[in-house]
């Protein structure tokens, strides 16, 4: 299905994935990451934005052994291999939570709300989870 569609259309749209929810406590983070990974095969112009508690999805040191859940934290580091290279985090959300980029498992670009607002207005498709 995907190959056929790319062949006939060759459409490249700007996709933004907006993550605002903390991991572990609910499945949104894990399942939204699955969308990003599958979506990579469609070769669209993709970026991910982490706002509010979404920042907690990419903090270092997650150990889910004792809660008996799958630890999908390492998957964020693999995003680069899927050509998902533009990751943006909210400056305000990081500051509110006492976090810096040193606390994160991936390289990100820090943006303030007005920069993220500008970026959002440039998108074709915004998927929020």
């Amino acid at each position: 299905m995907s190959e056929e569609m790319m062949e006939e259309g060759g459409v490249v749209k700007k996709f933004m994935y907006v993550n605002r929810k903390a991991p572990i406590g609910s499945i949104y983070a894990l399942e939204s990451l699955e969308v990003v990974l599958i979506g990579a095969a469609f070769e669209q112009d993709v970026c991910m934005v982490f706002l509010d508690d979404g920042i907690y999805q990419i903090v270092k040191g997650m150990d889910t052994n004792d809660v008996e859940m799958k630890n999908f934290s390492p998957t964020y580091r693999a995003l680069e291999m899927y050509d998902v290279e533009r990751l943006y985090v909210s400056k305000e959300a990081m500051e509110e939570r006492g976090l810096t980029t040193d606390d994160l498992v991936v390289d990100v670009e820090v943006m303030d709300a007005s920069q993220i607002a500008d970026l959002m207005e440039e998108q074709d498709v915004i998927l929020s989870f």
Partner: peptide, 20 residues
Amino acid sequence: SGLGQLIEAGIQCDRLVVFG
């Protein structure tokens, strides 16, 4: 069907509206 169907909808549609 697979998640590709969601991405395809994003590509094909004029608007994608999310409810959650």
